[in-house]
Each structure stands twice: as C-alpha cells, then as structure tokens.
C-alpha cells in the first residue's frame, strides 16, 4: 500500500503557480526524498500534505483514504522554520504540543519520559527553552515530532543546524523509525544524505515534478557507459589500445596498480568487450559501472528543465 498519493495537485498564489499538476507516490515503509532547488514548491507541497493549506486542484490520499482532518494525528511534521515558545519550560511545552496532536496527558508523559531518558536530557525538563542551545532545541523538537508515533513523518531540512554527531544520531533515528514501520518524507538539499538514507526520490523544479522513482533505478538510468576499474599491468599499452571508441578519465597511477574511469563511446561495445581487451595487458582487480551521484543528477536535470522552460 502507498502511504501517500498526491494526484495532479495544483496550487496558485496571487501571481505565480506554486505547484503545477504535481503527482507523487510514496510507498509505505520508504524513506522518500523530496528534492528540488529553493522556491521549487516543496514546502507548499508539504504544507498541503499537512493540511496547512488546501490545493486548488487535485487530491491527496493518505493510506488509501482521501485526506481528512483526522489524518493530522497520523502525521508528524518537523518544518524547516521551526521554533518553540521561548519562555515556556521544555517539559510543559512538549506536553502541550503533543496533546495538540491528540495524545492523552498520561500517555504523553510516559512517552516523553522514555525519549528524554534515551537522549539523556531529563535535566532539561524544567528549563526554559531560551536557556537551551539551538542544537538542544532541535532535539526537543525532534522528540515532539515523533512522540505521537505517526505513521507518516515529514522532515523539512532536518539536518540544518545540527553538528555531525547529532546529524548521525538523527539519521539513525530516522532509519529506526522506518524499521519500526513508519514512512518518512524528507526534504533536503544535502544530496549525500539522500544517497545514504533515501529509497525513493522525487525532484521538483519550477513547480513541476520532473523526476520520481526508486533511487537506484534513477541512478542507473542516468548512468552513462562509464566504468570504474582498478588494473594491474601495462597501463601504457592499454592506453594506446583504448583509442577511438573509448575515453580514459581520472587516472591515478601507482607503482603497480592504476585506478581509472573508462567511458565507452561506441554504443555497440559491451562491458565484456572492454574486459577482454584489458585482460590482455594485465589483471583486473575491480571493475564496476560508475553510477552518477545524486548531486550530479540533480544539477543535470534541473539545468536541463531550466533551459527547456526558457
């Protein structure tokens, strides 16, 4: 089943179209990356999913049901622009915000105790929020977001402002939640973290979805015929053989080993042909197809659509 399906969503503001016929499908149990340049419409889409704003056209389904107000209790949302009441105490505030999500007071207290112990922050309970550092506040906010055990979690730029240790902790927690059955949508500019934790992605640019699918499939689709090879043997001879149909990139020559990338220019040549040639001059200790990074794909696709739209 899909955790979330958005169909042909359109949202218009006074003089610009924020979302133009956007459809996404978020499979249950996935970590779904919502990518796109600044101002592409990601936050608007997230706000629609959270029922903060309503779409002008299109529909949203949550676990197969048409979106209704009761669904907010199944969603945990950590917005990009986040904050807490500065003058309120941490415990009081966590209690208040979680009760707003529909949890009972006793249950909230029980779960808060668990999380505060887990993060070892029990001593913060009676502190005012303004006494905490920004990173500490983010931890509190993370707890508040997940406390009501939502089936669907939405994180908008969750790693901004976190130090590497807390970033790692947060990543682990996100994967934990996924393993416990939650579905996670998260929006970020950090492509390395996308490769690390996302199963699916959608790329939005200029109010339109321009790419969607499982991350491995996408990376394979965008792969050109480039192979990463580690080779032991006569590199000079190899170099003189691989001429017209090949292109050798990024060579690092060691005393015996050399690592390189080889691009196959002729579409008729298969990887086996390349291997056959190479084995004549030495040993291949590793041979793998080069997959483009999400960063490369992001830039490539966004630039392509930008020129198209122009």
């Amino acid at each position: 089943m899909n955790a979330l399906v958005a169909e042909n969503v359109e949202k218009k503001f006074a003089n610009h179209l924020a979302l133009d016929d956007v459809s996404i499908t978020v499979p249950e149990g996935s970590v779904y990356g919502l990518l796109g340049p600044n101002g592409a419409g990601k936050t608007t889409l997230i706000r629609i999913i959270n029922q903060i704003t309503a779409p002008d056209k299109g529909q949203v389904f949550i676990y197969g049901e048409k979106m209704q107000s009761k669904h907010v209790e199944n969603i945990g949302y950590l917005p990009e622009e986040r904050g807490l009441y500065k003058k309120m105490k941490v415990g009081e505030q966590a209690l208040y915000l979680c009760q707003l999500k529909g949890l009972s007071k006793a249950e909230t207290l029980k779960r808060l105790k668990y999380w505060f112990e887990k993060f070892e922050i029990q001593s913060w309970w009676d502190k005012k929020v303004e006494e905490l550092s920004k990173g500490m506040q983010q931890k509190v906010q993370f707890i508040i977001t997940v406390l009501h055990k939502p089936k669907l979690l939405i994180f908008d730029e969750p790693f901004s402002g976190f130090d590497p240790i807390n970033t790692k902790m947060l990543k682990d927690e996100i994967l934990n939640l996924r393993n416990e059955g939650a579905t996670i949508i998260f929006s970020t500019h950090n492509m390395a973290s996308v490769e690390e934790i996302c199963d699916h992605i959608a790329l939005i640019n200029k109010s339109r979805k321009i790419l969607e699918g499982p991350i491995n499939e996408i990376r394979n689709n965008y792969a050109s015929d480039i192979y990463e090879i580690t080779f032991e043997g006569y590199f000079n001879k190899l170099e003189s053989t691989l001429t017209s149909d090949y292109k050798i990139l990024d060579v690092v020559e060691n005393s015996q080993k050399s690592t390189m990338k080889v691009e196959v220019l002729n579409k008729n040549i298969k990887s086996n042909d390349l291997i056959t040639i190479m084995t004549q001059y030495g040993n291949i200790s590793s041979f793998q197809k080069h997959l483009p990074s999400m960063n490369d794909i992001f830039i490539k696709v966004v630039e392509e659509t930008n020129t198209l739209i122009k």
Binding site: I52, P79, E81, G83, Y85, L97, L100, I144
Partner: peptide, 11 residues
C-alpha cells in the same frame, strides 16, 4: 518564534 507552523499542522 516560528512555532506557528508546528501548531497549525495539528490544529
């Protein structure tokens, strides 16, 4: 305080 977006996702 930017807390408003958190709250309007609940109410």
């Amino acid at each position: 305080n930017r807390i408003v977006e958190v709250i309007v996702s609940s109410v």
